[in-house]
Computed example of a mutant assay.
Amino acid sequence: MRYTNIETALAGARALLQQKDIEQPRLDAEVLLAHVLGCSRAALYAGAHRRLEPGQLQHYNRLVQKRAQGHPVAYLVGHKEFMGLDFTVTPAVLIPRPDTELLVETAVHLLSKRAGGRPLMVDVGTGSGAIAVSTAHLVPTLRVLAVDISAPALEVAQKNARTHAVDDRVVFLKGSLLEPVMERLNGEPVDIIAANLPYVPSGDIPGLSREVRREPLLALDGGPDGLDLYRQLIPQAQKLIKPGGHLLLEIGPGQGETALNLLNNWQAKLYRDLGGRERLIAAEKR
C-alpha cells in the first residue's frame, strides 16, 4: 500500500481491513495510525492532509497488515484502557475487557462498606494486573496479593502497578490459584478474593474469533464446562476469607446456574453485565 498523507493512509487501511472482515475497520485504522504518529484520533482529522514520513508509513503498513491477519489492536499498540487507566499489555496476558469492570466496581462497593483498617484483597489469575491495580488505585487503603502462574504475565502486572503508583500496596506472587497466598498469610483472613480465571469451555476454543485465539490459551481454557479452576478455587477460598468476606468470580454467559450450585455454603448472587449477560457471581461467606 502506498500512502501519501493521513487521509489516504486511513482510506487504504480501512479498505484492507474491511476486505479481511475485521469487525471495526475504521476504528482500528485510526487507533493504529494515531499510535504511529503519537497523537489523538481527533488530531488525525484535524491534520488530514499531513504527509507521512517514509518511516511512519512503513511502520503503519506493518501494523495494518498484522491487524488484517487477526492480531489484536491492543497487542499491536501495547496498551489497553481499563477502569479509566492505561494498562500495558503483551501477548503474555489476556487483554482487559470492559465486562470485567463490573467485578472491580463490585469489589470497590463492598470495600466501601467496611469501616476503617487496611482491607486485604487477593486477585487470582491477575494477568496484566488490571483488577488488582485498578482496585488498589480506587481504594487507597487497600492491600492486594496478586497471583499468577505465568512469570511473563507477572512482569507485565508489576510494570502496571509501578505505572499507577500502587506497587507499594500490591504484592505479586507466582503460583497456582491460592497456594502461594496460603503460604504467605499465616492465618490472616482475607476480605475479598477476586478471580477472573479461564472460563471458556474447551470445546468452544476453536470457534473463538481470530483475535481471541491469539491470546494466551492458558488464560482462556476452563475445561469441559469452563468452571474447572473455580471448582478448585472455591474450597481454598473458604479457608482464607473471613466471615462476611466475599468471593467474586467472573463467569461466561450460561454458566450462572452451575456456578451458583458450586457455592451452596455461601450466600451467592448472580450479576449481569451491561449487555444483560451472566457475568459475575458475588458470594458472601456465611
Rank of each mutant, 00 (worst) to 15 (best):
R2I: 09
Y3N: 00
T4S: 13
N5Q: 12
T8Y: 00
A9K: 04
A9T: 08
L10M: 05
L10T: 07
L10G: 02
A11P: 02
A13R: 01
Q19Y: 07
K20F: 00
E23P: 02
Q24V: 11
R26V: 11
L32P: 10
A34F: 08
L37T: 10
G38F: 15
A46S: 07
A46C: 05
G47D: 10
H49V: 09
G55A: 09
G55Q: 10
Y60I: 04
L63D: 07
Q69E: 14
G70N: 05
P72A: 11
A74W: 02
Y75A: 08
M83V: 06
V89F: 00
R97M: 06
T100V: 12
T100Q: 06
L102P: 08
L102I: 14
E105Y: 01
V108E: 12
V108D: 03
H109W: 03
H109M: 15
K113V: 13
R114I: 15
A115D: 12
A115G: 00
G116C: 07
G116D: 05
G117C: 11
P119N: 09
D123N: 06
T126C: 09
G127S: 04
S128K: 11
S134G: 10
A136I: 07
L138D: 04
P140G: 06
P140A: 09
P140F: 05
L145R: 00
L145G: 01
L145T: 01
A146S: 01
I149R: 13
P152V: 09
P152G: 05
A157S: 04
Q158C: 14
N160F: 00
H164A: 04
H164F: 02
V166Y: 00
V170K: 03
L173M: 12
K174H: 14
S176N: 15
S176A: 14
E179H: 14
V181D: 04
V181K: 03
E183W: 00
I193G: 04
A194L: 13
N196D: 14
N196W: 03
L197F: 09
P198H: 09
P201C: 11
P201A: 12
E211D: 14
R213Y: 06
R214Y: 01
R214N: 11
E215S: 03
L218S: 12
L220C: 11
G222N: 02
D225L: 04
D225A: 05
L229S: 05
Q232Y: 00
A237I: 15
K239P: 00
L240A: 06
I241E: 01
P243N: 13
G244H: 05
G245K: 12
E250C: 03
G256Q: 15
E257I: 10
N261R: 14
L263Q: 10
L263I: 11
A268G: 07
L270T: 10
G275N: 12
G276K: 10
R277I: 13
L280M: 12
A283I: 15
R286F: 13
